[in-house]
Design a protein around this nucleic acid. Structure first.
Length: 848
RNA sequence: GCCCGAGUGGUGAAAUCGGCAGACACAGCGGACUUAAAAUCCGUAGCCCUUCAGUGGGUGUGGGGGUUCAAGUCCCCCCUCGGGCACCA
């Protein structure tokens, strides 16, 4: 930085007396690293209240980014605060270490995925330590190691046993770039979640599925009892599960004997008298049957399927023009015996409901559009009221509407009719009340190498067999050639594929697909409680002590994927008796993104700010503290380097204050009686100190606006500077408030800037780690203002601010207000009609 | 289309219960220190108008309306941006 060598010497000299994080931080980091007990959780016998503070584990890409820094700065502040509050804190970290990037890296630079991944983990662990994050590394979890993934396999087998894992052939999402299948949750806008510009294709494949739909109701209903989760996340999950209550109704196909009835799904069985056609999805089983004898129909149906596929791949399924083709067949409405034509239509989805609907043009917008196009009848059967004025069609009202022209149900309110007609259908054997979900079972097979092998075996004689528990783990072989075509790379490893059947001992083949990496992250936080257990995924007693997680912190991008899988996994583990809790986390916090120049940081935009670079220039404390100061944690944060410099400047001001004080303490002198001015300044400073303690405590306890915590600290330090001449400079006026305040600063700083806090604490001659030092208590009496500045308004407009005693009563306030000459001037010639006095807040005179 | 969230100075933001809008910072401007610069310290600052000046006045939280003595905050309508879901019957 210096321009000439001449300047080098004085610069270095100057630094001796200055805040220097490059010296302070590595020094403390080395001591903390050497003390594994520092951040270790204690056994339950400690008697302290437990606190499980968890940040989402990262994928070990090799580099921390600013999003991580923000996430961990939040979690670390909370963990440190809870320690100081006397809690037994579990604050672990681990690695979501399986996944495709390792395979891509292997292809690119011929490093085996394992080596690449473990190298990255070592680098990132080092970065985390450099940041001063308070993790208990003894509980570290790495998901790509057999000691972890064997328990994925173990739980998978339990699921097979319980019928929760099953194999079926179905249409699946296929990403050509990943060369593997994706779960529904991993398809974003028709594209792959890892390749935002690659369209996902549909393929028919045999896959392993986990029966998450079994828990659909519980996953949905549980959301109502989770006040500690953001509404946004709960709403997203509700939408994703997409429960809809309705009725299945069977429509007999007319003039046939063996054709099965068409079961339609409807949420509006009350509109059934208005049905004027039946619409089938092009893939409907009956259609498949009919096209065999009807070439014309076959051609039309093929076209529709092709079109749907194209639209789905373009992410545009909602906008294709509706059209359909009549099958020439008819069905009977079981409620009134009417004959309805059966059509095949491109807007009917095969994989929702039953793939068949009754079309009610008068009361459904899509059906209306379709009926208009093909001239199908529109029959009104719902009206806002019985004496009903005509409503424009389609009319979709429900809550206050009634049935008309619906036989015996005419006059019934819609909601009651739905109930009664559903029951009627059940009693008559023509239907059933039912519930459908948007949520589908979770496809977990991946045709990739770098993942957990699915522990199943295929025997020609005995079919699909689970690997016996005693043979776990099914180890992922090393030295496998990574290819991204033609199925899983494991298929090319004979030593892996060829095995014996657990039943007959004859030749058999292993499953070569691996598990979705979201399996790994669905339960890792349980493993933290007992990370070294070689005999079980974890000791249920330990999990019982620590769960639920008291605070989970991470990005909102996981609102559906990880957070719904984790909830599912928790319920499964509960049902197989491993744990007792039904939800993993009592509180969830989703932090905002870190952006730069208005956009998310990305290599392609060239706006990436490297944490290493920030730490090298300003130190870890300043970098972390800026991440907390620049915006409240739930909002997006615009990274401005000048702001980091500003925080660094603040830390330097704190350092200087304490440094001066430390030096002053060493000098010998005899203090005389403090002056009145010094005593007053001391009282003022003490008041601000206790207000600051109160403010920061309150924020850390719940609201989490850390930016205002930092602001409050800055204010306190500014006040120290303002009082410095009187309180520190004046030798004859040593006042206890000064020393007390300076001793409190490191404590208040500890959650946000742990290195500097510990340094200052030690420099002040104090012993031990701040992590275990009690958090200071705010004294309400000392924090109380003695004087208040009361704004005086006339007709709501500010005229003057008067100073009164803080506890002044209404009359005193009134008097003080009207005694002011500028107020009097405003009142001249007018009448005060009303006087509003809010004690301690304001006076407002309403005049005419 | 439906459901969330946001919109406040040049910038990041604060205002937690309806009670002084802009705390705290960044960038700016002015000053002190210095031969000079950096660093540091102190001061200043929403915008517009007014005064030689001290000052005085107006206006202001995306826009429009409303409730209230009083609205960034509550109610209604609208606009813009971000996110989620989307032919889900």
């Amino acid at each position: 930085m210096s321009e000439s060598t001449n300047n080098a010497a004085p610069e270095r000299e100057a630094q001796d007396g200055r805040y220097n994080p490059a010296e302070i931080e590595p020094k403390w980091q080395a001591r903390w690293d050497a003390d594994p007990a520092l951040y270790a959780a204690e056994p339950p016998a400690s008697g302290k209240p437990k606190f499980y503070c968890l940040e989402m584990l990262p994928y070990p890409s090799g580099q921390l980014h600013m999003g991580h820094v923000r996430n961990y700065a939040i979690g670390d502040a909370l963990a440190r605060f809870m320690w100081m509050r006397g809690h037994n804190v579990l604050h672990p970290m681990g690695w979501d270490a399986f996944g495709l990037p390792a395979e891509n890296a292997a292809l690119k630079n011929h490093t085996p995925p394992r080596e690449w991944t473990l190298g990255n983990i070592a680098d990132m662990r080092k970065q985390m330590r450099r940041m001063g994050l308070s993790y208990d590394w003894a509980t570290e979890v790495t998901t790509c190691l057999p000691e972890y993934y064997r328990w994925n396999q173990w739980i998978f087998l339990k699921m097979v046993e319980a019928g929760l894992a099953y194999r079926k052939s179905s249409k699946v999402n296929w990403c050509p770039a990943c060369a593997t299948v994706l779960a529904n949750e991993q398809v974003v806008g028709g594209c792959c979640w890892r390749h935002e510009d690659i369209l996902v294709e549909q393929r028919e494949l045999e896959q392993w599925f986990l029966r998450i739909t079994k828990y659909a109701d519980e996953l949905l209903d549980g959301l109502d009892a989770m006040p500690g989760w953001p509404d946004k996340v709960r709403t997203m999950q509700r939408n994703w599960i997409g429960r809809s209550e309705g009725t299945h109704v069977d429509f007999r196909v007319a003039a046939t004997a063996n054709t099965p009835a068409i079961t339609v799904f409807t949420t509006r069985v009350d509109t059934i008298f208005g049905a004027t056609s039946i619409q089938l999805a092009p893939e409907h089983a009956l259609v498949k049957d009919w096209v065999k004898t009807d070439a014309e129909l076959a051609r039309a149906v093929d076209e529709m399927i092709a079109q749907q596929k194209a639209a789905r791949e373009a992410g545009d399924i909602g906008n294709i023009e509706k059209h359909g083709v009549s099958t020439g067949k008819q069905a009977v409405n079981p409620f009134n015996g009417e004959m309805l034509p059966i059509w095949v239509a491109n807007y009917i989805l095969a994989d929702y409901g039953t793939g068949a609907i009754m079309s009610v043009p008068a009361h459904d917008e899509r059906d209306f559009e379709f009926a208009q196009k093909y001239g199908l009848p529109v029959k009104r059967v719902i009206a806002p009221s019985l004496d009903g004025e005509e409503q424009a069609l389609p009319y979709t009202g429900e809550a206050e509407a009634v049935l008309i022209e619906s036989g015996e149900w005419s006059g019934e309110p819609c909601l009651e009719a739905q109930e009664k007609m559903g029951r009627f259908a059940e009693e008559g054997g023509i239907g059933k009340r039912t519930t459908t979900y948007r949520l589908k079972d979770w496809g977990v097979s991946r045709q990739r190498y770098w993942g957990t092998p699915i522990p199943m075996v295929y025997c020609a004689q005995h079919g699909i067999q689970p690997v016996p528990e005693a043979q776990l783990p099914v180890l992922l072989p090393e030295a496998v050639e990574i290819t991204q075509q033609g199925g899983s790379p494991l298929g090319n490893v004979p030593e892996f594929v060829n095995t014996t059947c657990p039943v007959c001992g004859g030749a058999a083949r292993r499953e070569t697909d691996t598990m979705d990496t979201f399996v790994d992250s669905s339960w890792y936080f349980y493993r933290y409680t007992d990370a070294k257990n070689a005999a079980a995924p974890f000791d249920p007693e330990k999990a019982k002590y620590w769960f639920p997680i008291d605070q989970y912190i991470g990005g909102v991008e996981h609102a559906i994927l990880h957070l719904i899988y984790s909830r599912f996994w928790t319920k499964v583990m509960r049902d197989i008796g491993l744990i007792e809790n039904s939800e993993p986390a009592a509180r969830l916090f989703t932090q905002g993104m870190v952006i730069k120049d208005g956009a998310k940081m990305s290599k392609s935009k060239g706006n990436v700010v490297s944490p290493d670079d920030m730490i090298a220039r300003y130190g870890a404390d300043a970098t972390r503290m800026y991440a907390l100061f620049a915006a409240p944690p739930d909002r997006d944060l615009e990274w401005q380097e000048d702001g980091v410099a500003g925080v660094s400047r603040f830390l330097a001001r704190v350092w200087t204050l304490v440094d001066e004080h430390k030096k002053a303490l060493r000098q010998e002198y005899t203090p005389s009686e403090p002056t009145a001015a010094a005593l007053a300044a001391g009282r003022d400073l003490t008041r601000t100190l206790h207000q600051t303690i109160g403010k920061i405590t309150q924020e850390l306890e719940g609201r989490w606006h850390f930016n205002t915590c930092v602001a409050a600290l800055m204010k306190l330090v500014n006040e120290c500077y303002a009082a410095r001449d009187v309180l520190a400079g004046a030798r004859d006026g040593e006042v206890a408030a000064w020393s007390q305040t300076l001793h409190m600063l490191p404590l208040l700083l500890a959650p946000f800037a742990p290195f500097l806090a510990q340094e200052l604490w030690t420099e002040l001659g104090q012993e031990g780690s701040l992590v275990r030092h009690p958090w200071p208590m705010a004294d309400a009496e000392l924090a109380r203002e003695t004087e208040a500045e009361i704004p005086v308004q006339v007709n709501g407009k500010l005229v003057v601010v008067v100073k009164v005693a803080a506890d002044a009563d209404e009359d005193t306030l009134k008097q003080a207000a009207s005694a002011d000459e500028r107020v009097a001037a405003r009142l001249a010639g007018r009448t005060v009609v009303k006087t509003i006095v809010v004690k301690g807040k304001l006076v407002n005179l309403v005049v005419k």
